[in-house]
């Protein structure tokens, strides 16, 4: 039962990832990525990591991908012409892909001898997850969050620098328009 579900969602995840690559319109690509994230969340759930599963949905599907879809909508990005076929990609990419596939298959076969738990025999409660995050791995966790903070600050600095540059007259008028509209609404 669990294995069947696991395989169904594994196929869904891979199909979503392939669909992401072959879709012409960016919004369909973004939505296939959402489907991939969702399928992965279900896989986590079947593997017994319920907290991670729902965090996956909340963070990736609910926050990050929404922003992607948002940007695509605001930019009103249309269909993208397929990239010209590159010979380098074919010569280097395909062998690397084959090598990667062999590595993955080897890993999977290597894992067969080890002691294994069946699907559905293992469940991680939320408490232990929090304990390992904020107790055992506190330093890496905090360092990672500082890393994110640096990223955010960098984005703010870049945006502020662009703002200081002298604006052409039209851009300035556009910037003032919302204010005027807001004043009108009052």
């Amino acid at each position: 039962m669990q294995l069947t579900l696991f395989l169904i969602f594994a196929v869904l995840a891979v199909a979503g990832a392939i669909n992401l690559l072959i879709q012409r319109h960016p919004i369909y690509s973004a939505l296939s990525l959402v489907a991939v994230m969702f399928a992965l969340a279900v896989e986590y759930l079947i593997l017994g990591a319920e907290f991670i599963a729902f965090i996956q949905v909340i963070v990736y599907a609910g926050a990050i991908m929404v922003l992607f879809v948002f940007v695509i909508m605001v930019l009103n990005a249309g269909e993208v012409a397929p990239a010209p076929k590159s010979r380098v990609a074919a010569w280097i990419g395909l062998p690397v892909l084959a090598l990667f596939a062999i590595l993955v298959i080897g890993q999977v076969y290597g894992a067969f001898g080890a002691t294994q738990l069946g699907l559905g025999e293992y469940l991680v409660q939320t408490g232990p997850v929090g304990n390992s995050l904020f107790h055992d791995f506190l330093l890496p966790f905090e360092v990672t969050s500082v890393l994110f903070l640096v990223g955010v600050l960098g984005a703010v600095v870049l945006a502020a620098r662009q703002d200081k540059a002298p604006k052409p007259a039209i851009a300035q008028a556009e910037a003032e328009e919302p204010k005027a509209m807001a004043a009108g609404q009052r």
Binding site: F51, F54, G62, V66, M73
Partner: peptide, 25 residues
């Protein structure tokens, strides 16, 4: 009754944006 029921509700709420955004676009 799942152990992370509240998280499920928050997750589903966060996905609710798609209905609105996709409809508008």
């Amino acid at each position: 009754d799942i152990n992370v029921g509240l998280l499920l509700i928050l997750g589903v709420t966060s996905l609710g944006v798609y209905g609105v955004v996709l409809a508008g676009w």
